[in-house]
């Protein structure tokens, strides 16, 4: 598999001079055609910033990002428009990502008509097909976003993303605002579309359990740095880096017996790891609070 998306030593920072703060430092990875790569991290890890930098919504301060060998950084509006057909996005918040004052039909035909210069009738035909493919009735075209539930809106956002037949979709927490059963359906839809079109997903999420079941490979981020990278199952089942281990250990498993065993094991491991000098009487819990305090 050749690389569809190449991210090479990407850097993002804010401010100048002494007030400069690095948000992303030297992150490199690749996404192949038809592959799902998950970017995982907690809040402040920079996972969303990487997605926005790739989409051109946040300027990068260094490094190289290429889609199919074409540079993606520092593009002018006209150049970005040419890329737009190949690079699309699905956001987390299905309420904010659709313009509340346009009908679904208007939202979905807009990129087709403006960007691909298709006629009105042809665009509408494509939209009807798209709606069917994402499991929505064709009548949805004439309704406004406010008339749909979160899951339905996310389907519409997916329809908009795939309408121009992109090569890569950046999915920024696409299911974290959804109910679990809706999440399962949306993930199934994404997987189905991928099988059919060989689209690559850069899947940004905080949920390792979703990563394990949905992604091919995973990249773990912490404070803007790449901590660990590898096949999703392998990383989740046998994490190498201590930070990844703590993430995996903290994720509760929907099985009380297994979860109790994991919890007890974790307590034992932390107790051994922090077998601190006698002068500092800390339990594992107190230490956690200290860590949290420091990261305020």
């Amino acid at each position: 598999m050749s690389a569809l998306l190449t991210v090479d030593r990407l850097q993002v920072g804010y401010g100048r001079g002494r007030r400069h703060r690095t948000v992303i430092s030297d992150v490199s990875f690749e996404v192949a055609e038809g592959e799902t790569v998950a970017l995982v991290g907690e809040s402040g890890s920079g996972k969303t910033t990487i997605g926005r930098a790739i989409l051109g919504l946040t300027p990068a301060s260094g490094g190289r990002v290429e889609l199919d060998g074409r540079n993606l950084l520092g593009l002018r509006a006209a150049e970005r428009r040419r890329i737009a057909a190949d690079l699309q996005v699905i956001f987390q918040d299905p309420y904010g990502s659709l313009n509340p004052s346009l009908t679904i039909g208007e939202i979905l035909t807009e990129p087709l008509r403006i960007q691909q210069r298709r006629g009105r009738a042809e665009s509408q035909r494509i939209v009807d097909e798209l709606l069917e493919r994402v499991g929505m009735p064709a009548s949805a075209s004439y309704r406004y976003p406010a008339q749909f539930s979160g899951g339905q809106r996310q389907r519409i956002a997916i329809a908009r993303a795939v309408s121009v037949a992109p090569r890569l979709i950046v999915c920024d927490e696409p299911t974290s605002a959804l109910d679990v059963s809706t999440q399962a359906k949306v993930l199934r839809l994404l997987a189905e579309l991928q099988q059919r079109t060989k689209v690559g997903y850069l899947f940004i999420t905080h949920d390792l359990a979703v990563v394990r079941e949905f992604a091919d490979r995973v990249i773990v981020l912490r404070h803007g740095e790449l901590v660990e990278e590898g096949p999703a199952r392998a990383v989740c089942d046998a994490p190498q880096h201590p930070y990844t281990r703590s993430l995996v250990a903290a994720a509760p498993v929907p099985d009380p017996v297994l979860q109790r065993a994991r919890r007890e094991e974790l307590a034992r491991a932390t107790a051994e790891e922090f077998d601190a000098p006698a002068s500092v009487p800390v339990s594992s819990r107190d230490l956690d609070v200290v860590i949290e305090e420091q990261s305020l």
Partner: peptide, 14 residues
Amino acid sequence: DLYVDAARVSGLGG
């Protein structure tokens, strides 16, 4: 709002 970002990603003009 995210939908404005989405429009930008779609390559719509300013």
